[in-house]
Design a protein around this nucleic acid. Sequence first.
DNA 1: ACCTGAACACCGTTCAAGT
DNA 2: ACCTGAACACCGTTCAAGT
Lengths: 240, 240
Amino acid sequence: MAARGRVRDKEKLSLERIVDVAISQLRERGYDAVTMRSIAAELGTGPASLYAHVANRNELDSQVNARISSMAYVPEPDPSRWDEQIAEVARELLRLYREHPGTARCTMGNMPASIEALDPVEKIFAILRAGGVPDQDASWFGDQFSLHVAAFAMEEDIWKSRARSEGLTEEEAWDHIPPVFMNLSVARFPVLTSLAGVLTTGDADVRFAFGVDLMIRGLKARAASAAERASLPGDSVDAC
Amino acid sequence: MAARGRVRDKEKLSLERIVDVAISQLRERGYDAVTMRSIAAELGTGPASLYAHVANRNELDSQVNARISSMAYVPEPDPSRWDEQIAEVARELLRLYREHPGTARCTMGNMPASIEALDPVEKIFAILRAGGVPDQDASWFGDQFSLHVAAFAMEEDIWKSRARSEGLTEEEAWDHIPPVFMNLSVARFPVLTSLAGVLTTGDADVRFAFGVDLMIRGLKARAASAAERASLPGDSVDAC
DNA sequence: ACCTGAACACCGTTCAAGT
DNA sequence: ACCTGAACACCGTTCAAGT
């Protein structure tokens, strides 16, 4: 029993265990504090051992990204409410990034990640297709939508890390913002100062919902205007 | 003359010179190769000297971001074509990030940056206001729009850096993508495989224009629907 | 094939000392 | 106030050696 069950608590290294530890450390210590060495240490070995399972730090990030992505729940397509379903997916992805702080920074620059991470992507495109979104629009939307969600999560994560490293709570850090806009020169920033109140209205969730809403409404608007005349994305854009 | 003009070619350190060197190194070597030490070396001193002008690496990034942002040209508001003007601003910002590779990574997580960097922001809000966009929508749009543009530039920059570090040209790196989608299992990824052709259609500029177009159209669509009934951002979103 | 210890070539930042 | 040399406490990665 003793000679088997836990002779040593090293049960062989594997990519899976490495990613497990990486994600748990990401959550507990934040992105900057997780290193090859800290991961190796928790696994009871030296950093060199990790390189038998992962090519480098970038690939580790990519694997972390794949793991998080593969955890996303995406509903079966319901054509009558594809737009709400896309908004739901956005919230689900943000929820996952938040539940595993630090992982958003592994995502940016690592898209589309690995093949296992494509399952949720497949489902997102299934929803768009069920909703009748034209293939080309759906394709580009998937790209920009994923980027936007990841960027929001990353920015939020950096913001929180920074606040923490300055010894502030999130609320305290937030409280530093409104005065900045209030105290701007009215002569130099007439619009910004007049917007000061509204600029700092709404928490992260509201801002996120707004951004996602913009993209979904934009997609619908394109379909509507395509009904009149065939239009390319550049439409109002590559005129210049 | 010799005793004055260039006794030594160290003409006093300053934040300005440090940022100058940082940006020029960012452009030439890419984000990862620019360090406090490399900047100091080019200025003929040691890394410790920089800390008299900049608190830490994060603040240097923030200063680089401020410098780049302040270079953005934003046109005077023309109410009749505010939407095209916003698209122009997006292209101008992307152009700046591209002209100074590596700086996009200084921007993410550093918004809204410093006060000097707010001049372009003021002008963007002036265009939105001239276009009749409601204050709250304009405010949230400015936030999500800036994030989206910075994220696009950052992703592109990381992508290019990665390609370069693997000894590939951008074209070669791009060529690796289509086969990935082509060779997916049709059974597991029926939608993705059917979209393979269209997924890899369009270069970076087209994708960028598409994303920006979505956000602008979304903003207009919100105004249109607000005409019928007062609506909050959550509308189709915080139902769940 | 997998794992390891030790080393290499770096980092950002601090600090006492100089001017 | 600004600058410096030297050091501290780290990094990611490599490599010869072990199993």
